[in-house]
C-alpha cells in the first residue's frame, strides 16, 4: 500500500450469519452475500466521513458463485420451476450489489474470482488514481456441502473485509496502520489455507 490507510477490518463466519439480524431482506441472500454484508457492517459509521459516490467496493470470491450455481442447478426439477431469487445470486458480484444497496455506496466496483490478494492492490490503485476516496475490500470463501461433492475443496464459509482510506493528517500513526494490515492479511491467509 503506498499512501492508503486501513480504517477498519473485520472477519466473519457462518456462525455470525446465523446470529445476524439485518432486516427482512437478509434471509433471501445467498451465503456469500450474507457473509460479505456482515463483514462490512461494522464499517458503516466510517462511511459518513466520505461522499458515498466516492467509496469503491472491491470484492474477491475464491469459489465465485459456484455454491449458488450448484443450488440453482439442483433445483431445476422443482415444482413451479427454479427459484428466481436464487438466480439473482448466480453471479459473485451480487454481493457487491447488496453492500452498495445497504450502504448507498455508488462509487466504482470490481469483482474478482480467485484468491483475495489482488483486492488490496486494486483498492490502493483506485485511491491512487483518484477514482475513489475510500474503498471497501472484501474477500469471501464459500464452499457448500453440495459443492464439496463436485470439486476438491473442503467446506468453507468465511469472509473478511477491510475499509481503506487515504492516509493524511488526523490519521493514526503507521504502527496502527501496519497492525491492522497484518490482521487483515492474517485473515486472508487463514481463509486460504484452513477449513
Amino acid at each position: 500500500m503506498s499512501n492508503a490507510f486501513i480504517i477498519a477490518t473485520n472477519a466473519v463466519t457462518s456462525a455470525d450469519v446465523a446470529a445476524a439480524r439485518l432486516g427482512t431482506r437478509f434471509g433471501r441472500m445467498d451465503l456469500a452475500s450474507q457473509l460479505s454484508l456482515l463483514a462490512v457492517e461494522p464499517f458503516a459509521p466510517h462511511f459518513d466521513s466520505f461522499a458515498r459516490d466516492r467509496i469503491a467496493i472491491v470484492l474477491a470470491a475464491r469459489a465465485g458463485s459456484l455454491p449458488t450455481d450448484v443450488a440453482y442447478w439442483e433445483g431445476r426439477d422443482a415444482v413451479g420451476g427454479l427459484s428466481p431469487t436464487l438466480f439473482t445470486y448466480t453471479l459473485p458480484s451480487a454481493a457487491i450489489g447488496e453492500i452498495a444497496i445497504r450502504h448507498r455506496l455508488t462509487g466504482p466496483n470490481l469483482c474478482f474470482v480467485g484468491d483475495g490478494h489482488e483486492i488490496l492492490t486494486e483498492a490502493d490503485s483506485l485511491l491512487q488514481t483518484n477514482e475513489a476516496d475510500a474503498c471497501v475490500a472484501v474477500f469471501t470463501h464459500v464452499v457448500s456441502p453440495a459443492l464439496t461433492q463436485k470439486i476438491s475443496l473442503p467446506e468453507a464459509a468465511h469472509a473478511c473485509a477491510v475499509f481503506i482510506g487515504p492516509n493524511g493528517p488526523g490519521r493514526a500513526g503507521f504502527g496502527e496502520n501496519r497492525r491492522d494490515m497484518e490482521t487483515f492479511c492474517a485473515n486472508l491467509r487463514a481463509l486460504k489455507f484452513t477449513k
Binding site: 427482512t24 431482506r25 433471501r28 422443482a78 415444482v79 413451479g80 420451476g81 427459484s83 428466481p84 431469487t85 439473482t88
Partner: peptide
C-alpha cells in the same frame, strides 16, 4: 407495505404453483 420487489413477485408465482 411489506416492501417486496419484482424478484419477490416472481418467487410468489413459483410459490403459487408449488
Amino acid at each position: 407495505g411489506l416492501g417486496l420487489d419484482s424478484i419477490d413477485a416472481l418467487e410468489l408465482v413459483v410459490m403459487l404453483e408449488k
